[in-house]
Amino acid sequence: MSEDPIYVIDIEGLVKRYKGRVNPTLNALSLKVERGSLFGLVAPNGAGKSTTIEIMCGLKSFDSGSVKINGLSVKDSLSVIKTIIGLVPQDIALFPSLTGRENLRVIGGIYGIDSVELKPRIEELLAQFGLTNSADKPVNEFSGGMKRRINLIAGLIHRPQILILDEPTVGVDAQSRNLILEELVKINRGGTTVMFISHYLEEAETICDRVALMDGGKIVLEGNPAELTKQHPDCKNLESLYFKLTGKQMRDTYE
């Protein structure tokens, strides 16, 4: 009988090169995310966050290294991995002409959720994120905050073991941001491993029990946010620590 691995995300020496670029986008990236943790991956633009997510979800190939999700290699077991992961992309990746409910019905159905179970699950999530009354409007008529929330629900509908969120709070008001962060903590407490990817160090510092700072395609620092700042008393918070380690030069300039 095989036991569930401790690390639900286990990346070792991951290298990804794009044609025409001198430096690899991912430069021997190694990352381990423990089961049940709320893990923050913080990096500037162009550091390779999106490429890492795309590789984890099987959307992109990689040159070398290994990527395992729940002990399964993405190269060999992608169809199983797809059912384990819930991805909340940075773009509002929904069908804009479909209503909120229709979107969730379609997405839930594709995940194979039985229609008897799907309807109450949709209503439960809509209520949880305050969208019950607006869910019959087409998504393209939603406000920015509502779009973010329904985008998040779409990643949660199939009760994934691992929830990966790429900048889930970009462009939303303070209330929506607060609701999203609170719900993420609740979801994590319910047993779901959450990988939270953001530019905002402050958000990661507040909600994550572990963070990794990424720069130049690799992890430059990893640990518990409180412990990290304690280890560097000259830095008042994670942001100043990050600047100390990586400098203030822009990262997404043309190579």
């Binding site: 169809s79 797809k82 992309p89 773009d91 990746a93 779409a154």
Partner: peptide, 16 residues
């Protein structure tokens, strides 16, 4: 439209 809007990418991260 699906490709540009990102819903196509979502579909590919699902069992489809």
């Amino acid at each position: 439209k699906e490709r540009e809007g990102g819903s196509f990418t979502r579909l590919l991260t699902m069992p489809c």
